[in-house]
Design a protein around this nucleic acid. Structure first.
Length: 497
DNA sequence: GTTAGGG
DNA sequence: CCCTAAC
């Protein structure tokens, strides 16, 4: 209570900012209703978090049922109880912060000065982070002014230390509820997405009752936060994948253009109740307008500042480091993106020259940006030809590892594509070798003739896999159907040395 | 994970 | 260069 005098100005400003932020959130976000749940594990569900949560049964407290008589000690004792059950290695300072990192992007930035991870289930249990769960019941009968005072003095103040944040959280929630009961705040008052609804689902605004105290009343409180744009994108993708209902309703049957298809690894994920039963009620944003096209430059800032890694020698490690360091990545959303793709991208992004990195950094937006086009130099082509001559066609990973280990931006697929283009170029050269003018008009004119000749020679020695067979299977097999096609394909193939 | 092939 | 099927 003494803080009230000391921090009055601060409290006022904070309170005003609270209101502003509440309005802001309400404007920006179609706030999920009480029957809505969020995807991607933003909400902490009992079933999903029992292993993580430290549960304190009946850590209830009485906030002074005598109207103006607010029992401060009871609150403190409650919070102490709650904190006491934390393992010693977690500690009061850590239990909010140490578990925040995987998902602090999508979860609450609560506590007014510190990121806190809060989930609120649709029952009586208050989940704080993934580590803390309080079975909470409240019986109060406090007038609005006193609630406000208490709220201001105890919910807002005392955030200077991390250990006091849980208290602030509890008090904030509980007293916000009391505001609603007192009609001080609108029924859907929210702060930073903290959605506080009255305890009684049926709309009755009765003050603390035995129902509340016993936890029988259906407390449909939850906390939400406006999801990030990326989160919405991924949610919409996930929604499209997991909810056939929604997909049919939206009329979209195919994949999103420019959005990478989620691998089956993550497709098998939605096994929890949240994804299956409540998914339809998650935050819905028209995904068509959100689907980033390939070359679209999103307004989103880069997920993380692309730190130029100085160790391209171990690209996988560097990229993993990148992923793990990405502060805006939610754990669940990691499963939404192809890890391999990210790795390859980060590899490219982090290992190029400075100019390239800058160019990529300007281009890198939402993660599905097209790789920077790098022209093949003559030396690279020569290396590729040497590799093909040495290892043969199709051993792209060997060639990559042995000859292109320094140029990390060339993947085995790149080598394969380049060789295919070289074959095209050599064939075109062979077809129009007499007419030099035609040859100069070709896009592969910069390649030296000697290189193309060598490619042609190698192509005769190492025929491109399936190039002949595919042509045969498409053109010659129907004509010679009576002949056993595999034998014919094999006979047409140039024997590999 | 790698490769081939279509785009 | 991207994507995906096939292996």
């Amino acid at each position: 209570m003494n803080n009230n005098n000391n921090n009055q100005a601060e409290e006022e400003s904070l309170y005003h900012s609270l209101e502003e932020e509440a309005i802001d959130v309400d404007c920006l976000l179609a706030e999920p209703r009480s029957d809505q749940v969020s995807v991607s594990g933003v909400w902490c569900y009992e079933e999903d978090n029992l292993g993580k949560c430290i549960k304190t049964e009946s850590a209830s407290y009485n906030l002074g049922g005598q109207g103006s008589n607010i029992n401060m000690e009871g609150v403190d004792a409650t919070n102490l109880n709650a904190l006491d059950v934390l393992p010693p290695e977690v500690g009061a300072e850590n239990f909010l912060t140490s578990n925040v990192s995987p998902c602090d992007d999508y979860l609450l930035d609560f506590g007014f000065d510190h990121g806190a991870c809060i989930g609120y289930a649709s029952n009586e249990r208050l989940h704080v982070g993934n580590s803390f769960e309080i079975q909470n019941s409240l019986s109060e009968n406090i007038t609005g002014t006193e609630c406000q005072n208490y709220f201001l003095s105890n919910c807002i103040s005392g955030t200077s230390t991390n250990s006091s944040e849980p208290k602030s959280l509890d008090r904030f929630v509980e007293f916000s509820k009391s505001f609603i009961k007192q009609d001080i705040l609108p029924p859907h008052f929210s702060h930073n997405g903290l959605d506080i609804t009255p305890d009684c689902k049926d709309g009755s605004t009765s003050t603390g009752s035995a129902q509340d105290h016993d936890g029988v009343g259906a407390v449909t409180q939850k906390r939400s936060r406006k999801p990030t744009k990326r989160y919405i994108d991924e949610s919409s993708i996930l929604s499209m994948k997991n909810s056939k209902k929604r997909r049919e309703a939206s009329g979209c049957k195919g994949k999103l253009p420019g959005v990478r298809r989620v691998k089956s690894q993550s497709e098998a994920k939605p096994k929890n109740k949240m994804a299956s039963s409540h998914f339809d009620k998650a935050i819905q944003v028209p995904f068509i307008s959100q689907a980033p096209t390939k070359c679209q430059k999103s307004d989103l800032p880069a997920p993380t500042e692309c730190q130029k890694s100085d160790l391209p020698a171990k690209p996988a490690k560097a990229s993993n480091q990148f992923i793990s360091q990405a502060p805006t990545k939610c754990q669940k959303s990691n499963s939404l993106v192809k890890p391999a793709k990210i790795e390859s991208r980060i590899e490219v992004y982090s290992s190029g020259s400075e100019d390239d990195s800058e160019a990529i950094m300007t281009n890198m937006t939402s993660g599905n940006q097209r790789k920077l086009h790098r022209l093949w130099s003559v030396s690279e082509v020569k290396k590729l030809i040497d590799g093909v001559a040495h290892f043969g066609v199709g051993k792209w990973t060997h060639i990559k590892k042995l000859l292109f280990s320094s140029s990390v931006h060339r993947t085995p697929v790149d080598l394969k594509d380049k060789w295919r283009n070289l074959l095209k170029a050599s064939h075109a050269l062979k077809g129009s070798r007499i007419e030099d003018d035609h040859k100069r008009s070709q896009p592969w004119r910069p390649l030296p003739k000697s290189i193309l000749c060598r490619v042609r020679e190698l192509a005769s020695v190492y025929p491109y896999p399936r190039e002949n067979s595919s042509k045969i299977s498409k053109s010659k097999v129907p004509l010679a159907r009576h002949v056993s096609s595999p034998a014919r394909i094999k006979s047409n193939k140039v024997p590999v040395a």
